[in-house]
Design a binder for these strands. Structure first.
Lengths: 106, 106
DNA sequence: TTGCGCTTTCGCAACATTGCGAATAGACTG
DNA sequence: CAGTCTATTCGCAATGTTGCGAAAGCGCAA
């Protein structure tokens, strides 16, 4: 994921401006999507860091590999506290939840 | 909730030693219960800080007061990310989730 | 090529959370 | 006391998440 140096045109930025800027509803969805993606990535990270396959982690929390796979899918929108806690517990972690203020951009 | 100064016997501590110490399963439940309680309290805090009644907050996230009441009940165990996000959104906050390592006590 | 381990996708039943109204309780005011 | 506002509890239908097996994809080594 190397950063390109000063592209003449940044397509991502253009798309952002076109579709998201100044559109709260869309921005909200975008943020949620990013949050879910981050959770998925984090689960994957924790699992691989612990040197476990999906099947092995699945056994630890008494479910199946397909469930773990679903959780690691960046497009999955059904993350629940209950499941995050089960995974955290199996990996000697705990889930910390915080509400942090959002700064309203102009 | 003033702290009592050096009680001769601390009942809470005694109970803790008797029922929880060195019993991982019970400790886990205890931790979960505390986490839920904390979430409930946090929601209550955010709502009152924003000067809203349960009914008002309920309208903001398009539900009813009884639902908010349930969320603020310390004994409620069904907290979900989806709901936490809705509330956070209505109050200009976002939900941050982190996995933090647990230190194994001896 | 085959075989093996790991991951991904699909469908549906089972279980958990939310939606919501109605009834009750508590605090406060007039 | 009645009247009002707020919070709480209950039950059940509607929606959402999880459980789980089966099948298929992928990478890699023999």
């Amino acid at each position: 994921m190397a950063k390109r140096a000063k592209p003449t045109i940044d397509a991502v930025e253009i798309l952002h401006r076109r579709f998201y800027e100044g559109k709260p509803a869309r921005l909200k969805n975008l943020e949620e999507a990013r949050a879910n993606e981050e959770i998925a990535r984090k689960i994957h990270e924790l699992r691989t860091a612990a040197n476990l396959t999906q099947t092995q982690l699945a056994r630890l929390i008494e479910t199946t590999a397909s469930v773990i796979c679903r959780l690691e899918d960046a497009d999955y929108e059904g993350h629940s506290l209950a499941m995050l806690r089960r995974i955290a517990g199996a990996l000697n972690q705990r889930v910390e939840i915080r509400f942090v203020p959002i700064r309203r951009s102009a």
